[in-house]
Simulated scan of single mutants.
Amino acid sequence: MCTHTATQKPYQLARFFNNQSMALLSPPRLLPLGSGATRICVSKVGVRCAATIAAADGAVTDVSRIRWGSTKLQGPRSEMEDDVIVRSDGLDGFSFAAVFDGHAGFSSVQFLRDELYKECSLAVQGGSVLNSKNIDAIKDAIQLAFTNVDSRLSSWLQEREDESGATATVMFIRNDLLIVSHLGDSAVVISRGGRAEVLTNPHRPYGNNRVSLDEVKRIRAAGGWISDGRICGEISVSRAFGDIQFKTKKNEMLAKGVEDGRWTEKFASRVQFKGDLVTAMPDIYTTELGSNSEFILLASDGLWDYMKSSEAVALVRNQLRQHGDVQLACEALALTALNQGSQDNISVAIADLGKTKWDELPVQGPNILLELSQAFATVGIVSVGIWISSFLVASY
């Protein structure tokens, strides 16, 4: 962390700007260690932070020739509330992968890690429903599983007086078919011949996209309101497991807001709740995986808030072309997001579909327009820094 004061001398400021200019021209450095170890990440401005990299259980499997990599990384936050799991048993040729992103504690994530797979496996009848090709039956089964788990979790949280919650994005994947059940703001991206295809939309109560506008409409119809992009000024995701204060304990939440001075008693008297403000009803997506489908990337918003889907796909492709190790590619992706400024925890799962001969893949050519724009931007920042430092030195 760098601090600056008003008494800093001009030549010190000049040295600062020159150092920042050189940092902008240098790529982030990743200091590699073995999986499960602590790595030191060096950011573009020289900030060092320890990050724990852990491979999830069952990170590699040969179901349908799919190879897996999975990583969870604790960023600058004081607590790790993410988790990622990969399972390849009991689903009749399908693998199961899920990323959980917790908030207000880790309890909900712990519950979901153990229970969501069990409930989903039961609902899809050990995979037979997934293999039926009946889209309506698949959606009904998965939505029922999510609803049942949330009901059980809510009762469990209420007994513990725990107000935690968690988003969850789940993949059921076979070599030729992908089924996604999505709740929250993690995301799934497919690489099709190097082109990034984003399957999911974040459930957030702000923004001008159709999904966000629909979420705001649903929340207001249920008697809620949006303040500073948060439901009742509290939570920035509109679909999640748990979060009982926005489901079964809404009136208690409203009364506590009056006690805490967040709103007036007159305002609270006018609120009439008509439904859950946060819901555990997932969006379901299905897509076929043709010959050009290379890999599937599932990650929490700690990655996507700091990296474009096209950048993530390009990085993973280049990693796999270099060494073919999907676990190493997974770790490199998470570390790159941290080096690009992510302030959140990061969880990633990558499924290499086994359809691409990575050692035969040609080197991906540079994006000339992108590199030129970045170069001009860098030169502009450097020039401004030099001009300011020269002006300050001259006037000193």
Rank of each mutant, 00 (worst) to 15 (best):
H4G: 04
H4L: 13
Q8R: 06
P10A: 13
P10V: 07
Y11I: 13
L13I: 09
R29I: 15
P32E: 05
G36Y: 04
T38R: 12
I40P: 00
V42Y: 04
K44P: 10
G46N: 05
V47F: 02
C49V: 05
C49H: 07
A56Y: 00
A56F: 02
T61R: 10
T61Y: 07
D62Q: 12
S64L: 11
T71K: 13
K72L: 15
P76A: 10
R77W: 06
E79W: 05
E81P: 02
S88R: 08
G90S: 09
D92A: 10
F96G: 11
A97G: 12
H103F: 13
G105I: 03
V109A: 03
L112D: 01
C120V: 01
G127A: 00
I138G: 03
T147V: 01
D150Q: 00
R152G: 10
S155A: 12
L157F: 01
Q158A: 12
R160P: 01
S164Q: 03
S164A: 05
G165E: 05
T169V: 11
M171V: 11
M171K: 03
I173T: 11
I179G: 08
H182R: 07
H182S: 12
D185Q: 02
V188T: 09
S191T: 02
T200A: 06
H203P: 08
P205W: 04
P205V: 07
R210I: 14
S212P: 06
L213W: 00
K217Q: 14
K217S: 15
W225L: 14
I231S: 01
C232T: 03
V237P: 07
A240G: 14
K247P: 04
T248K: 10
M253R: 11
V258T: 00
V258G: 03
E259Q: 10
E259Y: 01
D260F: 07
F273E: 03
K274L: 14
L277F: 03
I284P: 01
Y285M: 11
T286G: 00
E288I: 02
G290W: 08
N292D: 15
S293T: 02
E294A: 06
F295C: 00
F295S: 00
F295G: 00
L298P: 04
L303T: 01
W304H: 06
S309H: 11
S310P: 01
E311D: 14
V316M: 09
R321V: 06
L328S: 07
A329P: 01
A329R: 02
A334E: 09
Q343N: 12
I350E: 07
D352L: 04
L353C: 09
T356H: 04
K357Y: 07
K357H: 10
E360H: 09
L370D: 11
T378R: 15
V379Q: 15
G380L: 15
V384T: 11
G385I: 04
I386P: 02
L392G: 06
V393Y: 07
A394D: 13
